[in-house]
Design a protein around this nucleic acid. Structure first.
Lengths: 218, 218
DNA sequence: GTGAGCGTTCAGCTATTCCTCAGCCTCCTG
DNA sequence: CAGGAGGCTGAGGAATAGCTGAACGCTCAC
């Protein structure tokens, strides 16, 4: 369930989550959130701390399911203490990759240990979501947060062609004002760090985008 | 079994204990506690001294299973010590690490000596829960209470990435109002005391958190 | 009362990271 | 083959997260 009073945020999140295969309900304020949660018992609630009526914490306390808080990065950032066990928070403005990663982490934590180890693999490139580690050709690679998010996006969409605009929308914060040049920079960083051996996995499709995939045998 | 009339405390404790693998029942007042305890015969009861109906001492007397008392840091604390009731106690506000440590200690004591010596180990870093002793590289290290709790939390979650918020929620009291800077300070203390030799075990994941683990061979 | 140990805050410093930009390269087209 | 659009990447400046020494109270034991 997604709870935010700003429709743009609500739509952004629910569309992105639905696309990733989640079933999503939404609520625009605290009372509606409590009501819907009690009726449907969602697995997880993405919850803005700042709601017009009830405080986000109050909502969380009342509905008693795992929560991922959304909070502004201003003065109150550090006030997010007293999270329930397994809960987490993300600061606005966020990136969709960030939110989805946190959601999966919370679900993994609260659903118990039966969740399979989350490990993405394409050829000899491996990414461990839990440990946040990346390996290429048996060698561990150190990535900065943005590099990691970008590679994660590539790997969870391996074989799919991604335009720079798509990449920007998922990996960068939703308020990012710059142009797509930054994507080129980070693709360049990634190539140097994880794609400097054969077979090359990150391919440029001129004036279309990029794709990460194992080249065909031929 | 967790007995407290405040829902937030009840939820905090039961979620945390469930996550650690305990089976948890809850009760909100004294009569319910006695009733549930008689029916289910729990291994241990975490019991608030101050209940709306029955006195916590009275509940403990009636149900006759090992008890960990929760109490305010006031004269009832002295009462517990004076009466010699209960098997141990923790003062509110507590930290989850504290409560879990006490629970395990009580269970170890009341279940007899068959419990294996609880000793955590990561590389040449060792922690003896019973003796509350820490060794690195064959050398014993003296830690303050908070340093010990933090290291214990790290070691029981070795290999798992922990955010500062998570650390704050487990190691610090639930009413702690400060910001996450204090975690950085304590990580710094720990590094100086137990992580000043190779291989380094406490690793910073910038803008994500920390992880304690043996660095991979690669 | 006094001193030691402890918890917490804070500020200066360092290292990392992010982003922009400009120049060069590559590919495509005519 | 010339030109241009699109792409690549090194350099650099600004912002940020994290580290740590120092200071300040608080508690507790003596």
């Amino acid at each position: 369930m997604v709870v935010d009073d700003e429709p743009s945020i609500r739509d952004l999140l629910s569309a992105s989550l639905r696309f990733s295969g989640f079933e999503v309900l939404t609520a625009a304020d605290g009372y509606e959130a409590v009501e819907v949660a009690e009726r449907t018992n969602p697995d997880l609630v993405v919850l803005d701390v700042m709601l017009p009526d009830l405080d986000g914490f109050e909502v969380a306390r009342r509905i008693g399911v795992p929560v991922l808080f959304l909070t502004a990065r201003d003065n109150t950032e550090d006030k997010i203490v007293g999270l329930g066990v397994g809960d987490d928070y993300v600061t606005k403005p966020f990136s969709l990759e960030e939110v989805q990663a946190r959601i999966r982490a919370v679900l993994r934590r609260t659903r118990g240990e039966n969740t399979p180890a989350s490990r993405l693999r394409v050829a000899d490139l491996e990414l461990d979501e839990e440990a946040r580690e990346v390996w290429r050709n048996g060698r561990q690679v150190r990535l900065s947060p943005t590099e990691y998010k970008l590679l994660h996006y590539f790997m969870s969409n391996a074989g799919r062609v991604l335009s720079k605009a798509q990449i920007l929308d998922h990996v960068w914060n939703y308020d990012f004002g710059g142009d797509a040049g930054v994507v080129e920079s980070y693709v360049s960083y990634l190539r140097r760090k994880v794609d400097d051996v054969e077979p090359r996995l990150i391919h440029t499709l001129r004036s279309v985008g990029y794709v990460l995939r194992e080249p065909p045998a031929g």
